Amino acid sequence: MRTSLKLGIDLGGTKTEIIALQDGQPVIRRRAQTPQGDYQKTVGLIASLVEDCERELGQQGSLGVGIPGTRSPDHGCIKNANSQCLIGQDLQADLEQRLQRPVRLANDADCFTLSEACDGAGAGAPSVFGVILGTGVGGGLVVRQQLLGGPNAITGEWGHNPLPWRRADDGPVRRCYCGQNDCIETFLSGPGWAARSELGLEASTIVPAAQSGNSTAQQALNRYCDQLARGLASVINLIDPHVIVLGGGMSNTAELYQQVVPLLPRYVFSDQVNTRLLPAKHGDSSGVRGAAWLWNDDLR
């Protein structure tokens, strides 16, 4: 589908957002409550958001949808979604039937990465690895403005590798919800870090405490930065991206960019680390923008 109007949907657990990009610039952006536990109403909401936008703009656009899960390459239905009503549903086919056009789906972390690679912090870079540091730890990989996907539809799931170069001061072994022990997500997600810090505080309050001089919180933040450096070093050693872009709630922590970059040479298999570590340009908008950029054939 060739059109200058690109529509993106970010399907979240509580909010569903739509954006309309005209020649790359936002012309409409709206949010609505996501129906809880009701798949058919969710499909209806997405369709109505699209139809309302197109009616207002007087033209039809391409449609990309970012989801909290992934579309299985084996059977086409949704898997690994924290919105349970999506699991086992053929969301792409149902939306295509309802809207009578092709629809592209991608994981929300992939959409984040694509947005930042197309016109965000990684614009112009040959390869961009996007990192989500939020309630979970996810990622995506874009090469020359195109998402890189594999046969299992799990490209970028670095959060479910074990933390490398494990040390005693990393704390006790913890089970990840995926069934494995000591996944990176159990260290670097906001809830995981808060639980391991043993301060009785949420991640959003540990950072200000550290910045205010609380020595225990400072130690926890320093440890987090070193763990992040180790996790990202394993990514760099494997795929050697030109840019790593951070998103999610933890990405707003200035210390990550100040402390992690000098730590990387300790762990990366190179005499110098040229990969750039950057905060997301579009912040919370990257997911929905990236969904629209799923139709980025004009950038090829």
Rank of each mutant, 00 (worst) to 15 (best):
G44A: 10
Y39L: 03
Q84S: 08
G44P: 06
Q36D: 14
S72F: 06
G76S: 10
E51L: 14
G44I: 11
R31W: 03
R31P: 04
P73F: 09
Q59S: 13
G61Q: 02
Q40I: 11
E51A: 13
Q84W: 02
T70N: 02
D74M: 07
I46N: 01
D74W: 08
D74N: 12
C85M: 12
G76M: 02
Y39I: 08
S72L: 13
C53T: 15
V50N: 04
Q60V: 10
K41T: 11
D52H: 00
A81F: 07
R55E: 15
R30F: 05
T34W: 08
K79I: 15
L57R: 00
D74E: 12
L49H: 05
S83M: 14
P35N: 02
G66Y: 03
T34V: 11
G61L: 04
C53M: 12
I67D: 12
G58A: 07
A32Q: 09
A47P: 01
D52A: 15
T42K: 03
G58K: 01
R30L: 12
P68S: 10
D74C: 03
A32G: 05
G66M: 10
H75T: 12
T42Q: 03
Q33I: 14
L57M: 11
G58V: 10
S72D: 12
A47N: 04
V65A: 01
A81W: 04
Q59R: 11
G58T: 06
S72I: 12
I87G: 09
V43S: 07
I46M: 14
Q40F: 08
N82G: 02
H75D: 15
T34G: 05
Q40R: 11
I67F: 04
Y39D: 06
I46Y: 06
S48H: 03
T34N: 01
I87K: 01
G69T: 06
R30Q: 15
I67S: 06
G64L: 00
L57P: 12
L49W: 10
P73C: 07
Y39G: 06
N82C: 09
A32M: 11
C53P: 02
G66H: 05
H75M: 06
L49C: 03
P35C: 06
L57W: 10
G37T: 07
C77T: 15
G61S: 09
L86W: 14
A32E: 14
Q59W: 08
S62I: 06
N80D: 15
G76A: 11
G69I: 13
L63F: 09
L63K: 00
T70S: 13
G69F: 13
L57T: 12
I46L: 14
H75F: 14
G37C: 05
R31E: 14
R31L: 08
T42I: 12
Q60P: 01
N82K: 02
H75N: 15
C77N: 05
T70R: 12
Q84G: 01
V65D: 13
P68Y: 07
N82T: 14
C77M: 11
G44H: 03
P35H: 09
G58L: 03
G64M: 00
G69H: 02
S48P: 00
E56T: 13
S83H: 04
T42P: 07
Q40K: 01
P68H: 08
C85Q: 11
E51W: 00
T34A: 11
